[in-house]
Amino acid sequence: MSTRLRNALSAALIAAACLLVPFGALAAWASYGLADTGRYVTAMAPLAGNPAVREAVADTVGDGIVRETGAGAPLRPFVRDAVRSFTGTEAFRAAWDSGNRAVHDAILTAVREGGTEEVRVDLAPVAAEVRDRLAADHVPFAHRIPVRHTEVAVLPAGELAELRRGFRALEVAGFWLPVTAAGLAVAGLAVAACRRRAVTAMSLGTALGGAFLGLAVALGRRLTLSDLPDDVHRPAAGAVYDALTGTLRTVSWLLVAVGLAVAAATWLLTRRQPSAPASRP
């Protein structure tokens, strides 16, 4: 195989590998990050102390209490203040984690096991945990808090089929896209006539892929928040988006940093390599 053909084939393989890097990272994040209940709950846990999230919870729960109890509008500020105060307690943090775990488990079970009915979550275990935590903190009459089996719809039945297809595609892509990218990169380096030039190209392409991934995350945040209904608390939604995509942002920065570092190291090694002595006639 001629040198020109080897370089062309190497460039095509490395370009394809670098193109798959951001898509592989995105698929792996969705398949192994969002689809794992433990990682999801861990990512969402810090939001229990986020001011925007606490404000959104206080407004939503406070309005729900006022609506359910029939309390008048003058009592709404007092109810919200009481709920807002509760969001600063350990009981709220426990309820936050339990609620997120229950919702994630319910959606994941419906997606993996099939079914055509809407996904509903029973909040009785969450209420029981809140009651026990308040009782442990010696809150008066906490043990008298009723625990009722209240099911809340979290996913309409009409969205299950589409979500199930997308989830299965992500499970396949989350494994094969990174493997394919690695295989193409190795093949591109193997057929290259100049390995150092190929390493430099692959490193710069990896850094460019990381930058593209970071740009996609930022653009996705803007589009997601702009498409939300008017009644959704946007600062809280932005905090949730940032918490869920934190791993993607870290991966994008790592790809940029590692790619540029390897490219710089390769360039320095090339500069320091002594040139071949001129041949005598």
Rank of each mutant, 00 (worst) to 15 (best):
L5Q: 11
R6C: 11
R6V: 07
R6Q: 10
A8F: 05
S10R: 04
A11E: 00
L13K: 09
A17W: 08
A17C: 06
V21K: 04
P22R: 08
G24C: 07
L26Y: 14
Y32T: 12
Y32R: 12
G33P: 04
Y40C: 00
Y40L: 13
L47D: 08
A48F: 01
A48L: 00
G49V: 00
N50A: 13
P51I: 01
V53N: 11
E55L: 11
E55Y: 07
A56D: 09
T60D: 06
R67T: 12
E68K: 12
G72W: 00
G72A: 04
P74R: 01
A82P: 05
V83L: 04
W96N: 08
W96Q: 04
G99A: 05
G99W: 14
N100V: 04
R101C: 00
V103T: 13
H104D: 13
A106K: 08
L108C: 03
R112Q: 15
R112G: 13
E113A: 11
G114C: 01
T116S: 12
V121T: 02
A124D: 05
A128S: 10
R131M: 03
D132N: 11
D132I: 02
R133I: 05
R133D: 07
A135H: 02
H138N: 14
V147Q: 04
H149T: 11
T150L: 14
T150C: 02
V154L: 08
L155A: 08
G158P: 01
E159W: 11
L160G: 01
E162G: 13
L163W: 06
R165A: 10
G166E: 10
A169V: 06
E171L: 11
E171Q: 15
V172M: 04
V172G: 07
G174N: 02
A182E: 01
L184T: 05
G188V: 03
G188D: 00
L189K: 02
V191L: 07
A193Q: 08
A198C: 10
A201T: 15
A201E: 01
M202R: 06
G205T: 07
L208W: 09
G210Y: 08
G210E: 07
G210R: 06
F212Q: 12
L213I: 01
G214L: 09
A216T: 07
R221M: 00
S226R: 15
A237Y: 02
A239F: 03
A239P: 10
V240I: 14
D242A: 12
A243L: 02
L244T: 13
L248Q: 01
V251L: 06
L255G: 03
V256G: 08
A257F: 05
G259Q: 04
A261G: 06
V262G: 07
A265K: 01
W267Y: 10
W267E: 14
W267S: 13
T270L: 06
S275G: 15
A278K: 12
S279F: 08
S279V: 14
S279P: 14
P281L: 10
P281Q: 05
